[in-house]
Each structure stands twice: as C-alpha cells, then as structure tokens.
Amino acid sequence: MASTQQTVALAGSRCEGCGAVAFPPSERCMHCGVYGASRIRLSTQGRVWAYTIQRFPPKSPPYVPPPEGFRPFAVGYVELPEGIKVEAVLDCEEFTDLDAGSPVSLVATEPVPRFATVSHQGEAV
C-alpha cells in the first residue's frame, strides 16, 4: 500500500498567471480565463470536506456495480492542501470515520478519484 501511495497521483493544473489550481487539468484557467496552465501532481493527502452515503444502486447504465453486487458507499469532496476540493469515492471502516474533517489518502485515480481513511488503509495492508 505504501508504494501505491507514492505512485498514484491525480493530475491537475496550475494557472501561470493567477495560480488557480484545477482538476481535471485544463489548458485554460477557469478563474482568469487565459491559456497557460501547467500540469501538476496534486497532493495525495487531504481532509474530508463533506460526504454523503449512496444508499441506493445508481441506474445502470451508466453505473457498473462491483462483481459482488452493490453496497452503499460514501462519496464526497476531499480538501487538498492546494485548497481545491476533489470529488471522490471514500473508503472507510465505518461511515462515521469520515466525520469532521477526517484525514484521507489517495488510493486510486480511475475510474474516479478514490481516497481512504488511515484506519481503512491499515486494514487493507
């Protein structure tokens, strides 16, 4: 798991002009509207900004449930040190582990960003 954390990172962009950070990366800055953003690796550690629990199976298509079938999962936004909040699936032992700004780490980038609580990563190892 430790090696995964080092290799997995989300690609973002930073505007050369105003410094605004974007995810997904974009060539045109959404803040000042000019071209000239450079690619950056976003921080892999952040804090849960807010989350909810997806209690019902989303409609398929487009949803592809896991092989073992749908189970409720947490989805929310992770605030990174850059200030940007990234939408992600959130892995945890108990949903309440995600309350009140819990620290989380990036564990996957596809098909969408996925972060996990420290205790959940401990379990996984």
């Binding site: 997904p24 807010a50 989350y51 909810t52 629990i53 997806q54 019902f56 199976p57 989303p58 409609k59 298509p61 487009p62 949803y63 592809v64 449930p65 999962f73 989805v75 929310g76 936004y77 939408e87 699936v89 596809e110 098909p111 969408v112």
Partner: peptide
C-alpha cells in the same frame, strides 16, 4: 432518479461507471 450520461455533461465516462452521476448525491453532500 435521473440517469444522465457523463459524456453529455463534459465528464469522463468513469463518473457514470463509478455511480457518481446521481443528482441526489450533490444535495446530500
């Protein structure tokens, strides 16, 4: 629930596969 396709909203297909194209999630969060 509505079942929008990510491609029509300028998003990668992964957001649909992962179950994130659900409007009610936004309101919950």
């Amino acid at each position: 629930a509505f079942d929008p396709l990510p491609e029509e909203w300028g998003l990668p297909a992964g957001y649909g596969e992962a179950g994130l194209m659900v409007t009610t999630q936004f309101f919950g969060i």
